[in-house]
């Protein structure tokens, strides 16, 4: 996976990702119109499909709103790389199929990143530096690869029948 970087700092909260006044729909594309509207005005217009978010600690802290990862998916974000994630955001992202990588990466707005999920390596193609990350535990990788929690749940329900 390759993408262009948007760099954020620490403690990016879900109110920044999608302000609460827009929590009147669950639709990813509709939510994407307001993504980072207060924290980084103009983001929604400039973001391109495949772009990657890079952030510092505790990305996605605050509310449990799944609208946050949905808004990022709707905006075309292909992956979020952060030093650490708030736990509900982390769960939500995996459950709905947005890849998240816990890794300390040096990158600036506009850098080009290449992520190899299987090898656990991120390359910043702009600075030509590489970073290693620990892949997700097997259970979570399976969850992500099987299409998220919806598909997992369907599979579980069919076993019961």
């Amino acid at each position: 996976m390759r993408g262009r970087v948007w760099k954020f700092g620490a403690n990016v909260d879900t109110d920044q990702i999608i302000p609460a006044e827009y929590l009147v729909t669950g639709d990813a594309r509709e939510l994407a119109k307001h993504v980072f509207e207060k924290a980084r005005p103009g983001f929604a217009e400039k973001v391109r499909k495949g772009d990657i978010l890079v952030a510092d600690e505790n990305f996605g802290c605050g509310s449990s709103r799944e609208h946050a990862p949905r808004a990022l998916i709707g905006a075309g974000i292909s992956c979020v790389v952060a030093k650490s994630f708030a736990r509900i955001f982390f769960r939500n992202a995996i459950n709905i199929g947005l890849p998240v990588v816990e890794c300390d990466v040096s990158a600036e707005d506009g850098d080009e990143l290449e992520i190899d999920f299987e090898k656990g390596v991120i390359r910043n193609l702009t600075t030509n530096k590489s970073y290693v990350f620990k892949p997700l535990p097997e259970f979570l990788l399976n969850l992500l690869n099987s299409g998220g929690l919806v598909e997992y749940t369907k599979k579980r329900l069919s076993i019961y029948e």
Partner: peptide
């Protein structure tokens, strides 16, 4: 809702989850 952790005051293990996981838990 993220503030579901409130019920820990009564000795429960309670925690906030997302909408998709709440849906899954309603089914499973």
């Amino acid at each position: 809702d993220s503030h579901t952790c409130s019920y820990g005051a009564l000795g429960a293990f309670s925690t906030g989850v997302g909408s998709t996981e709440a849906a899954s838990a309603m089914a499973l």
